[in-house]
Design a protein around this nucleic acid. Structure first.
Lengths: 152, 152
DNA sequence: CCTGAATCGTTGAACCTTCAACGAATCTAG
DNA sequence: CTAGATTCGTTGAAGGTTCAACGATTCAGG
């Protein structure tokens, strides 16, 4: 490792502080809303949302975990609770004996309907009401590029 | 509430998905680095960093919690561990009997020195190496505005 | 085929965070 | 001065996440 790590200059530090504060505070803000409106965590909400948009509202546990930005273990624990509450159901994958499929139930859809409007409203309030169309696109583009770095 | 919550359109959804993925994945990425380099969590690292930049490397628990983006309760638990490990020390505030002051110790500074270079390198790799100077400023500005919305 | 490697999901234990309750100190209004 | 309200920090319990280990299934190479 020959490359030194020069410290952040003032402008970089200002940017970083604002950015990391958003990163650290946004999740709990989102969590509060879905917890109030539907008595579920934001991660549980994510599971339901991703399933809703999936084909047959069904998805493999692994893929679900990835799209929900969580570990498979975390999903497994959460899925047990969601299944106990009747919001999803799980069954063995017919084509691959290792896999488990998770599917949204009617009660899951109801729960989603309970949380979604408030969630959209909050996302707008936090992000899209504040940004012009161009700024929105800029935010998306910057996010994609940072994301690519994180994944690597 | 007369205002309807129109669903996100396609461009908004694309932006949101990229953005929220960064928000959800960045913390664990940062966590992994400091845990590897210094065997502490990112929140613990934040506590040490904020103290390092404070006057006399000392700060009230409440202020510390706010600047670390965590609850006071969370900080209190973490501070107990950090104090047990000798990385910080706590003592009653002389001017306000309700307050507790936390101060960085020598061992805390050592721990910081252990984690900081890798942290800076990672922050650069994730964000600043990828962005032009203008894009960086843009990211900072957008973050500040979103943050203002979240705080409100 | 057959064996070792890899993938998939679950589990229990350890750990951390959240939440509600509390004691102590300070502020405020009368 | 004083009683009530507020601020500050800690605590224990409850609940959620991470980590390592595991069984089961599938894949890859000989």
């Amino acid at each position: 490792m020959s490359d030194e790590a020069p410290w952040l200059d003032e402008a970089e530090m200002t940017t970083w502080l604002a950015f990391i504060r958003v990163v650290m505070r946004l999740p709990s803000a989102l969590d509060g809303q879905v917890r109030n409106d539907a008595d579920i965590s934001y991660f549980e909400y994510s599971v339901l949302v991703v399933l809703e948009h999936a084909e047959d509202q069904t998805m493999r546990m692994s893929d679900l975990a990835f799209l929900c930005n969580g570990s498979l273990s975390r999903l497994s624990h959460v899925a047990r609770r969601l299944e106990n509450d009747g919001l999803i159901r799980r069954y063995a994958c017919p084509t691959d004996g290792r896999s488990t499929l998770a599917a949204l139930t009617d009660r899951g859809r109801e729960k989603l309907a309970q949380a979604a409007p408030g969630h959209v409203k909050l996302v707008r309030a936090f992000v899209f009401d504040e940004l012009t169309r161009d700024e929105m696109r800029q935010l998306g583009e910057l996010s994609e590029r940072i994301l690519a770095r994180i994944q690597a």
